[in-house]
Write a protein that binds this DNA or RNA. Sequence first.
DNA 1: GGCCGTTGGTGTACGCCGTACACCGCAGAT
DNA 2: ATCTGCGGTGTACGGCGTACACCAACGGCC
Lengths: 245, 245
Amino acid sequence: MEQRAAGRRTPLNRARVLHAAVALADEAGIDAVSMRRLAEELGVVPMALYKHVANKDELLDGMVDVVLGEIEPVEPDGRELHWTDAVRQRVLSARRAVLRHRWARQAIESRTHRTPVVLGHMDAVAGMFRAGGCSVDLTHHVMHALGNRIWGFSPELFDEPPSDPAGPGPTAEEQEAMVREFGRRFPHVLEIATVATEGDLSAVGQGCDEQFEFEFALDLLLDGADRLRRQGWRSRDRAGAPPTI
Amino acid sequence: MEQRAAGRRTPLNRARVLHAAVALADEAGIDAVSMRRLAEELGVVPMALYKHVANKDELLDGMVDVVLGEIEPVEPDGRELHWTDAVRQRVLSARRAVLRHRWARQAIESRTHRTPVVLGHMDAVAGMFRAGGCSVDLTHHVMHALGNRIWGFSPELFDEPPSDPAGPGPTAEEQEAMVREFGRRFPHVLEIATVATEGDLSAVGQGCDEQFEFEFALDLLLDGADRLRRQGWRSRDRAGAPPTI
DNA sequence: GGCCGTTGGTGTACGCCGTACACCGCAGAT
DNA sequence: ATCTGCGGTGTACGGCGTACACCAACGGCC
């Protein structure tokens, strides 16, 4: 009888608000998430939301919590994992969660609040370093080095340069002239773009293989960390990694 | 005679607008930089700015360009530098520029546009990798791994948790209870905080030694890159760094 | 059954924001 | 003397977050 005959809607609560916000961001982008638009989506007046979240900042925090809540714990799996593989698994799971929600990267980057969910993820990762034999000291600094990668994304230098949707674009020879001029000013960027697109410069802008870049950096850092661990690195030693070999 | 007797102000131009915006952000924070506020600062009506910047996004781009313009080139210095030291110098110069303007980190992170100034910095860094003997392939992936560090800042997991300015705060025993509860839920985060503050947990929140963390990560990545270079790493090898040693 | 405090949704209003669009004064070229 | 266009103006629109006063329904209590 809690549904009350005709059209008494089920009351709002914090979870419903947050999940509606996530759904809205998923389908209309993070910019579409305004208190007014979200309220409309829930069939309610904007001020009603403030009974469930303190303000917009807290709404964003809650949305990030929802995403981070999708991270799957690393299950022990019978045989032992090397600690770097355990971290790798958890970070890649975080990555899948973030990729599921395209707005999440930007939202996480803009947050400045440590919610319990956020602390929980950091604690879980730190625990894996410790279980692998890293000192507290090393764990601390390596987590800093991982930076945003702990949340499953790289700080992208840039997202896609949106191909301008106006007209048929420049002619082939205009395009070639532009490439030449570009190469005169930025030769090293051009050669990278050439190699990355395997010579098809018209494919510039569809971006790099982000998953590869992410795993490359992750492994570079984890391998470096493991090497420091084996050397018994302590931060008083100063200087990132000593000149081994 | 361009000053025109009494109080005909010197006309606006793009550079004046950008530098006024930078100055405003420096002293009042990036949030204070609105078209209206900036116009007021320049003694002009808001719409006047639009004769010099296309819109607010372009204004932000221009402000970032101003900051990046403060990066000092690495001078050859007589004796040869190892390539990692050259990169290190340039990146640390970029860091000094970014630190000079506290809003710059956030502004850079939010940008999605590659201005010529931005491309110029990337090109300069890529050129140092190449001069050091890195392949185009390796240069590409390592620059991705460096991520935001190329601009001179780490993706901070979090900035300071602002000590709440209300009242005298909790009593000592309340505080101890909070720490105990925190440690129950986030034991690994707590031990890191304990070590980082050298036991003085009341100092939590004044943050880590960011400069140390930055250089630690930078050196870890550059050393890893140099090791890969010496090994003749190619991206078809897959997997960040092979299990050397 | 009658009261009453609490919880959750409402309505109005304020002060910001970015920016579209029409306008206009003035300098320099014709 | 007239034209042209650049740079500054004024007005207006639609959006935003949220403070504050209000009110309907409900649960617990006598």
